[in-house]
Design a binder for these strands. Structure first.
Length: 478
RNA sequence: GGGGCCGUAGGGUAGCCUGGACCAUCCUACUAGACUGGGGGUCUAGUGACUGGAGUUCAAAUCUCCACGGCCCCA
């Protein structure tokens, strides 16, 4: 087969958009053929990745959050309570208007997010300072009527996997601390996916509708655009006043609570796939790979001892807690290599008659292609160790890539030149008018002020020329 | 928000402008069998499609309109 024909299976990664769409299909993540715009179907293989990814976020949250589940439908009068919130979402809400053939007296919204479903109940649940803090989360689907270009896992009409946490605190300061904690949790979560993220405080005009402020984490995609993959919002007492959520403090006074909410979605999986994948297909970090090791028996006529050896190895690996599969299909070995490379299996193990004679197996890393022999006698230890090496190698490589694509700039021309590659760091005076002009002049967005940045003299604002005390991330956004 | 292009087996294409028969064609995929087997195998025999609706017509994959879906450009 010629090189050209091989490429026909999957476009090169440098053609990122085509590569992404095709990969979802060929690697069996999502089937994009569902006949409604913006809705897609999880293949079982993709869904297993999802399961593994969400197990991690659950593990992290379950340390001090409780999982819950609220209804999908929100009555109109609750949804319409918070003015800012409505303004932010009204254009993208689906409404249920009929029960059978009869019009409903009260229209029901399909949640675009769940604040207005949850907070009427929080009003009932929160009575005293002893009830606080309250930290709940749920993993649910949400609906947004996107009119722009929809894209699987990234811009959806049904977000199938929205993990949203909603916390209640006694004071504004405690809530602020929870927002920081949320960002720490997300950073750890993404590290487990081997995805480096940048945290920044969103500018005021880009915060969550109804929030005091928003801190978000972004991932840098291969095409140089950033993908917002997690947000944490300080809601102040805005929703508490709207939904009348109060507690009795030790002094016996009724006071409004302070709240936060924070979420991640299947965009996490979009980032995971895009950042690590290559021209041959998926590259999955061992943590989330549905199959961590695939064993390819190299069989000739009558080579039942090869099969037996493979089964024995499979058993050993399974006992060590490794997700392992033997490919016994009657394809040629080469065809199997390509198939499992497409599926992103981190480690391939080849065993043939030649290896048996030598008492070894051939180990092939998916991320580097590196091939080496390992003795069969301590195969499970070798495998385990290699998987760990791959996991951290993927993260380190991704971190280095992001670092190399953040550019310190001082002028708008400079930013324009650098943006196709990645992210710019630019001084900004903090004035909204200047910020909007920056965005307009370079045709990109201000992500925000990097968290942890110390204020001080950072140069001149490229618009008004005044002294700037902060630098902001600027990037082309999804 | 405005404009343009497109929709043919599971996937990729030809045919459409200029309506017509025949099993519509090729690559791939899938099914069955045989030979094979250390990087996408070969042969044989099969399976499978004109997005949906309305209109024009003796006749529609082809022309017209609407819907749904996809892609691109501009703001």
């Amino acid at each position: 087969m010629t090189e050209k024909e091989k490429e026909a299976t999957l476009p090169a990664k440098k053609d990122f958009s085509e590569w992404y769409n095709e990969l979802l299909q060929v690697a069996e993540i999502m089937d994009v053929r569902y006949p409604v715009k913006g809705l897609y179907v999880w293949y079982p293989f993709g869904f297993t990745i999802r399961k593994n990814v969400y197990n991690i976020i659950r593990e992290l949250l379950d340390r001090d959050h409780m999982e819950t589940m609220f209804p999908l439908l929100i009555p109109e009068h609750e949804f319409m309570k918070e003015a800012e919130h409505i303004k932010g979402f009204e254009d993208e809400v689906y409404w249920v208007t009929h029960g059978g053939t009869s019009p409903l007296d009260v229209k029901l919204a399909l949640r675009p997010t769940s604040e207005t479903a949850i907070y009427p109940m929080y009003k009932l649940w929160v009575r005293s300072h002893a009830d606080l803090p309250l930290k709940l989360y749920q993993v649910v689907n949400t609906f947004r009527y996107e009119t722009k270009h929809t894209r699987p896992l990234i811009r959806l009409r049904e977000i199938t996997s929205f993990k949203e946490a909603h916390t209640v605190h006694a004071t504004w300061e405690e809530a602020a601390e929870q927002v920081d904690e949320a960002i720490r949790i997300y950073t750890e979560f993404y590290k487990r996916l081997a995805v480096p993220v940048l945290a920044s405080k969103r500018p005021d005009w880009d915060k969550f509708p109804g929030a005091d402020y928003t801190i978000a984490v972004d991932a840098l995609m291969p095409d140089g655009k950033t993908l917002q993959v997690g947000t944490a919002h300080h809601l102040g007492d805005n929703f508490a006043r709207t939904f009348d959520i109060k507690y009795e403090n030790p002094a016996g006074e009724q006071v409004y609570v302070h709240q936060t909410c924070y979420g991640v979605s299947e965009r996490s999986i979009a980032a995971l796939i895009s950042i690590h994948g290559d021209d041959k297909g998926l590259v999955l970090p061992p943590e989330v790979a549905p199959i961590q090791v695939v064993i390819i028996p190299i069989v000739f006529k009558d080579s039942s001892d090869v099969i037996h050896a493979c089964e024995k190895v499979q058993q050993l690996l399974q006992d060590a807690g490794i997700r392992v599969k033997i490919d016994l299909s009657d394809d040629r070995p080469g065809a199997k290599y390509y198939r499992w490379e497409m599926k992103g299996v981190p480690l391939r193990l080849e065993i043939g008659p030649r290896d048996l004679k030598n008492g070894v197996a051939v180990l092939v890393r998916r991320d580097t292609g590196e091939k080496r022999q390992a003795p069969l006698e301590n195969i499970s230890h070798e495998t385990q160790e290699t998987l760990e090496v791959i996991q951290s190698a993927l993260f380190e490589k991704a971190v280095a890539d992001v670092q190399a694509r953040i550019f310190t700039c001082s002028s708008l021309e400079d930013v324009k030149e650098k943006l196709p590659e990645g992210i710019a760091l630019l001084p900004w005076c903090g004035d909204k008018a200047c910020g909007l002009q920056i965005e307009e002049k370079i045709g990109a967005g201000i992500l925000g002020i990097p968290t942890g940045q110390e204020e001080g003299h950072k140069g001149q604002c490229p618009v008004c020329g005044k002294d700037a005390s902060v630098k902001v991330y600027v990037a082309r956004k999804y």
